[in-house]
Amino acid sequence: MGRLIGRKLFQALVVMLLVTTSTFFLIHIAPGDPFMPDLSVSGVSAERTDQIRRNFGLDRPIYVQYGAYLKNVASGNLGLSFRSYRPVSEIIIERLPNTIVLTSLALIMDFAIGILIGTWQAWKRGSAGDRFLTVATLTLHSTPVFWFGFMLILAFSVSLRILPGSGVVTIGIYDSLTPLGQLWDRIKHLILPVSTLALIGAGSTARFQRAAMLDTLSQDFIKSARARGLSECTVIFRHALRNSLLPTITLLGLSLPVLLSGSVLVETVFSWPGIGALTVDSVQSRDYMVVTAIGLVSAVMVLAGNLVADILYSVADPRARRKP
């Protein structure tokens, strides 16, 4: 177990180095310049942009910049933002909680709904309900996530006006609410973005769970359990569900990058001040250091998710521990 974690950690380090290197060069070699003049205002001054480049060390050769960057990252320094001269780590830490709340709630809801639906479908396979849900989950799985968000906003914020469609809290009155009211205010703002991410994700989770469950139900130990005269409920929930969750755990690790991709779009649609919205912002304003750091942070999140999935898997399935 310890060796497994050690090996995985080492692999993760190698991957992180690769990610940092590739994003660094992709960004720094890109044509154009973060301090491009604005054609619509007069007084374009080359000296000024040269000076700003010097302030951020962009006048040095690329390999020197890269070396300095690696050294800084190793000591926890992610550089300065070109837009505000602030430490990038500060900017990321400000935004990270919002994204973590959004994605982790979405992940929980995604798996809860997905496993529930998938299990039910496998249990009642072939029924009208199963066929309907197959189409429904497939449709969710195939819907553009930002478009789904727009549809929810149209329905619940614009037409019905019962749920807010943007932001984290109701600005202007949040401070004067009671703690309970504040909590409710936050929950109201979470409902639409979390549902958008979770429902789209639940589409594939349900499909996966249904297949895993069917696979388990066809195995011998289930047959023998049935033969022993155990009730269908006991068979499904006591024996089959536990075993079918194993492959679904691996899906957990795979879901994270998809979820983060989705959060870029969902955060933009719902003006959610997280890492995803920051990505779009920084890429547009060519805030190189912030963009590089986001690459690194999302890699860390994904790798951590994979590691957790690996550990869970090996805890749940003794066979996996012996595999090389």
Binding site: V15, L18, P257, S261, G295, S298, A299, V302
Partner: peptide, 15 residues
């Protein structure tokens, strides 16, 4: 692994 550990939208946005 490196390619998969970053959300695809991020790669695409950057490039």
């Amino acid at each position: 692994d490196a390619g998969l550990s970053i959300p695809r939208v991020f790669w695409l946005l950057v490039i």
